[in-house]
């Protein structure tokens, strides 16, 4: 089912992001590389503090990078850009934030929240046109047009997240970074919002970078997944490949921890704990290697040999 020369929309190469200055620096993201094809949903999975949110923000230029490149359609988009170039990037990339209670300006009307980005990009839009676009956006996320004159606090978490999605989609982006878009929502609402996102993807040919810590959801939505641990992507593969034959010990540990809604399997399950000292990187440093088509892993040569054996290669 692989396309021959699939169109790479986003290419991240050797990206590093460091916080702090002088003596107190913290490397949040360390030499990370991955690529996202047009039209797919790419899952970036990790626990808290892994750096996944930082990567999402750096791609959208909310956060500066300290090394490496982020290429969008072949053009470098991190680092210093002219206003025109910046404008071009922002037009096509948008973000959906995690916490619907925190990501909306409580003092602004819904219509202003949704239209703000649009007004920035097309300041001479007429009031009538703006109203039309806002109402269109609200309808598309399943909310009523009359909600546009209300304030965020009048809505539930699920509705607020839809407003956040409307805000994102009104810009007609090609690429969306969804940072844990359903984690803060009640369990029964999650399915609704997720279905909404999937529907938009189909209708508009969107590409998603889906950042999450909930592996079950990622398995459902993403076609390819990267697993990140303490700022390093340890493994990346097609979703089913990763879930059925994980290689890296961290991936295995993470997967073993995911609860399975099947009491017979879950009760028998053996929990694997990841111990970083199982790697011996003193003698030989690890590299980002493509061990089989579309399956990348962070390992040194001795480890690669082991993995190949495990895959019967």
């Amino acid at each position: 089912m692989q396309n021959e020369r699939r169109n790479v929309l986003l290419d991240v190469r050797n990206l590093s992001i460091t916080f702090g200055r002088g003596t107190k620096t913290f490397k949040a993201v360390d030499n990370v590389s991955f690529h996202i094809y047009k039209g797919e949903t790419f899952g970036l999975v990790g626990e808290s503090g892994s750096g996944k949110t930082t990567i999402g923000r750096a791609i959208l230029r909310i956060h500066p990078t300290s090394g490496g490149d982020v290429l969008y359609k072949g053009k470098k988009i991190n680092g210093k850009l002219s206003r025109a170039e910046d404008y071009e990037v922002i037009r096509h990339m948008q973000m959906i934030f995690q916490d619907p209670m925190a990501s909306l300006n409580e003092r602004a009307k819904v219509s202003d929240i949704i239209a703000e980005g649009l007004m920035n990009l097309q300041p001479d839009l007429s009031a009538k046109e703006k109203k039309r676009r806002v109402e269109e956006a609200l309808l598309s996320v399943g909310l009523l047009p009359e909600f546009s004159s209300r304030f965020p606090h009048e809505f539930s978490g699920g509705q607020r997240q839809r407003i956040g999605i409307a805000r994102c989609l009104i810009m007609n982006p090609e690429f969306i970074v969804a940072d844990e878009p359903i984690s803060a929502l009640d369990v029964s609402i999650r399915a609704q919002v997720l279905n909404l996102l999937l529907r938009f993807q189909k209708e508009r040919g969107l590409t998603y970078l889906f950042i999450a810590h909930d592996l079950s959801v990622v398995r459902f939505v993403a076609s390819r997944v990267a697993v990140i641990h303490k700022g390093v992507i340890v493994e990346m593969a097609n979703t089913e490949q990763l879930f059925s034959r994980p290689l890296h010990p961290y991936t295995k540990a993470l997967l073993s921890a995911v609860p399975i809604p099947n009491p017979l399997l879950e009760k028998k399950k053996e929990l694997l704990i990841y111990d970083p000292s199982c790697h011996n990187y003193e003698s030989e440093a690890p590299q980002w290697t493509e061990i089989e088509p579309e399956h990348f892993i962070w390992a040194n040569r001795p480890e690669l040999a082991q993995y190949r054996k495990a895959l019967d290669l």
Partner: peptide, 18 residues
Amino acid sequence: LLSSLPQLAAGEEELYCI
């Protein structure tokens, strides 16, 4: 409740939601 679990949505297009 059970149907809306992503783990059980094998191969489906959409998640079941109530």
